[in-house]
Design a protein around this nucleic acid. Structure first.
Length: 472
RNA sequence: GGCGCAUUCGUCUAGUGGCUAGGACACAUGCUUCUCAGGCAUGUAACAGGGGUUCGAUCCCCCUAUGCGCUACCA
């Protein structure tokens, strides 16, 4: 079933630290991780910080923290900026072998060339007129790979997820490698790194498909084996364009802060671009690792559907026991309501488990932690009136004061008593009793059941809140 | 403009040369009769279009359309 590889599986994720960890990068990292673990191979993190201007240490930190949070532990770590001797060595070699050359054209000249090509409906690229002899009186600009523009060769590769992909070599042109010996450009740095790190499979987003022929040319110039490529589908926004900020939160830490569980995110991201052999949708990381195959990765992009994520996350929340739930929910509760005793949180745990999609929603339970504020009109049940609400509250209070044993709070008994009250005073309309009670206790239009709230609030708070409501 | 990739319910997807095209999320309805949530049940909803090949195409081939990606001395 599972494909067996002769060589050691080594894969990498190579984010550039020019922003916080993007969910798309996280997904790409996840697929690399899954593939590596499935085959007992190595997963490498390589920070691609060749762009000095845009790379920031805090982004690097954010990326690493995000991957760790998801549980995607890497086996080796590298940083491009610390590898300049390697780039320099290979650059010099290519120059010596005349496979690469210094280009003397200025950016303006390049733009002019591109404009001409567009006009002639040709592929925009640079074909250097002085590949082998240096012009006089001009300044060196950039190092390029010498690519035969007259070749009829078709560069092809077998993509693990898409099958055969082909490009005509003549559309590539003399591609740029480095600004100088010390400053490599992306495509060159990637190839040198992948080759030196003995990367067996390059698994990355499909936005890199058109970089692939260029990189193959560089691999060939270097005289090294070309790795196996696998291009992943993109994560899409609701308008089906590449997922970006305007579609909503795109950086992983925003989901972390909102109280999504890493296991749920992993599950969701895995399913968004891949389907396992069995039809279950809630899968543990180990189950995914076991089933994961590049051949089962989808070819087309998937819309990032937050509602599905919410559902998956709620499924994970439902799996917690009370203790576990307290631990997860506590930081969010304390963020909004200050320090809270564990006994308090554990009381509402069953309610949280039933109602939460993500932990930031604990703020909707504010009535447990602060006095409710509400419009007195809200106390009035739709089929009743103001005096009716007052009467219901007063009568309910009597029952709760006299008949309820608060130490051994019996929800069933209280309900039966309140039902009797409805029967006796409100012709069996239970809403007339329960609605004002709920509002008095929670201050909300939508809330959990009032008897449950009483149980959590306890005798004193319950009675004061009801008392207060009768005066509104 | 060039090059590349893609196309099954609103969304994520399963699927096969002959099926009532399956599931999940979302949505709707009903029940659980205080609201909301949850749970349970039910329902609406899809093979982009046109040509072939074939007894028969969602599935194989071609074309078209549409969408997306790349098109840097960014990564």
């Amino acid at each position: 079933m599972t494909k067996v590889y002769k060589q050691k599986i080594r894969v990498r994720v190579a984010p550039s630290p020019t922003g916080n960890l993007h969910v798309g990068t996280a997904q790409s990292a996840l697929y690399n991780f899954l593939f590596a673990r499935h085959h007992g191979g190595e997963f490498i993190l390589r920070i691609e910080d060749t762009d000095k201007e845009r790379s920031k240490p805090e982004y690097e930190k954010n990326i690493m923290a995000g991957l760790e949070w998801l549980g995607l532990k890497w086996d080796e770590f590298y940083r491009s900026s610390e590898r300049s001797i390697h780039y320099e060595k290979y650059l010099q070699k290519l120059l010596d072998e005349k496979k690469a050359f210094w280009c003397y054209h200025t950016i303006e000249e390049l733009e002019e060339e591109k404009k001409e090509q567009m006009k002639k409906k040709e592929a925009p690229r640079h074909i250097c007129g002085h590949k082998y002899q240096e012009p006089t009186g001009k300044e060196k600009q950039i190092i390029r790979l010498s690519v035969d523009e007259n070749s009829t060769r078709v560069i092809s590769f077998q993509d693990s997820v898409r099958g055969l992909i082909e490009f005509e070599q003549k559309v590539v042109g003399d591609l740029s490698l480095a600004k100088d010996l010390k400053i490599p450009l992306y495509n060159f740095a990637v190839v040198v790194d992948d080759c030196e790190m003995a990367i067996s499979h390059v698994i990355r987003g499909e936005d890199h498909i058109s970089n692939t022929p260029k990189q193959i040319l560089i691999f060939e110039a270097l005289g090294t084996a070309v790795p196996q490529f696998a291009h992943l589908p993109l994560l899409l926004g609701t308008d089906r364009s590449k997922l970006s900020k305007r579609h909503g939160p795109t950086s992983l830490d925003q989901y972390r802060e909102a109280g999504y569980l890493p296991e749920a995110i992993v599950n969701f991201l895995a399913l968004l671009g891949w389907t396992g052999k069995d039809s279950r949708e809630i899968l543990t990381k180990n189950e995914i690792i076991e089933q994961f195959r590049l051949e089962d990765v989808h070819k087309s992009g998937a819309v990032f559907d937050i509602k599905k994520l919410n559902w998956i996350n709620s499924q994970y929340i439902k799996m917690f026991n009370d203790e576990g739930l307290v631990e997860e929910a506590r930081p969010f509760i304390e963020k909004y309501f200050g320090e809270q005793p564990k006994e308090m949180i554990i009381k509402i745990a069953p309610m949280l488990r039933e109602r939460l999609e993500y932990f930031d929603q604990v703020k909707e339970f504010k009535f447990f932690f602060t006095e409710p504020e509400y419009d007195p009109e809200l106390l009035v049940w739709k089929k009743s009136d103001k005096p009716g609400a007052k009467k219901a509250l007063e009568k309910a209070k009597e029952i709760l004061e006299s008949k309820v044993e608060w130490q051994i709070f019996d929800e069933k008994y209280i309900r039966s008593e309140l039902d009797r009250l409805a029967e006796a005073e409100f012709v069996g309309d239970r809403g007339a009793v329960y609605w004002p009670l709920r509002v008095a206790l929670s201050g909300e239009k939508f809330s959990p059941d009032p008897v449950q709230i009483m149980n959590i609030l306890g005798r004193d708070k319950t009675l004061t809140r009801i008392e207060k409501a009768t005066h509104k």
